Computed example of a mutant assay.
Amino acid sequence: MTPFLVIQAIVIGLAVIASLIYACRRLMPATSQRWQAALADSLSASSRPVVLRAIGKRLQPEAAAGGCGSGCGSCSTGCGSGSAAVEQPVQFRERSGE
């Protein structure tokens, strides 16, 4: 194999992996967050080197915050989203003749 073919295979492989990660995050968000948390936990183990622990800490997904101002509207404190969805009628307009 020539060096060009090796580089080409690496670039195509990276593009396929990036596409797979993107599709998993878009189509299976809860599962991908679980996988991300599992990877972060395994990298954050105390037996790992400092560099891997830092990467694990950075990869840890953000916890779903349900505090005031999150817009969940599930508590009686009145801090929910406050704005109700407003229905707007659909208006069809004729195209101008060109």
Score class of each variant (00 low, 15 high):
residue 2 T to S: 14
residue 2 T to P: 09
residue 4 F to A: 15
residue 5 L to N: 15
residue 8 Q to H: 10
residue 9 A to P: 06
residue 10 I to V: 13
residue 11 V to E: 06
residue 12 I to W: 04
residue 12 I to E: 06
residue 15 A to N: 03
residue 15 A to L: 12
residue 17 I to E: 07
residue 19 S to A: 14
residue 19 S to R: 01
residue 20 L to Y: 07
residue 24 C to M: 14
residue 25 R to L: 03
residue 25 R to W: 05
residue 25 R to T: 01
residue 31 T to Y: 05
residue 31 T to H: 10
residue 35 W to I: 15
residue 36 Q to M: 15
residue 38 A to W: 12
residue 38 A to L: 13
residue 42 S to C: 03
residue 45 A to F: 03
residue 46 S to Y: 01
residue 47 S to M: 08
residue 50 V to I: 08
residue 54 A to N: 07
residue 55 I to H: 00
residue 56 G to L: 01
residue 56 G to E: 01
residue 57 K to R: 11
residue 57 K to M: 01
residue 60 Q to Y: 01
residue 62 E to V: 14
residue 64 A to L: 14
residue 65 A to C: 14
residue 65 A to Y: 15
residue 68 C to H: 09
residue 69 G to E: 02
residue 71 G to F: 05
residue 72 C to A: 11
residue 75 C to W: 05
residue 75 C to G: 01
residue 75 C to R: 05
residue 77 T to A: 09
residue 77 T to I: 01
residue 78 G to H: 05
residue 78 G to K: 05
residue 81 S to C: 05
residue 81 S to Q: 06
residue 82 G to C: 07
residue 83 S to V: 13
residue 83 S to T: 11
residue 83 S to Q: 12
residue 89 P to A: 07
residue 92 F to T: 06
residue 93 R to A: 09
residue 95 R to Q: 10
residue 96 S to R: 09
residue 97 G to R: 10
residue 97 G to F: 04
residue 98 E to M: 04
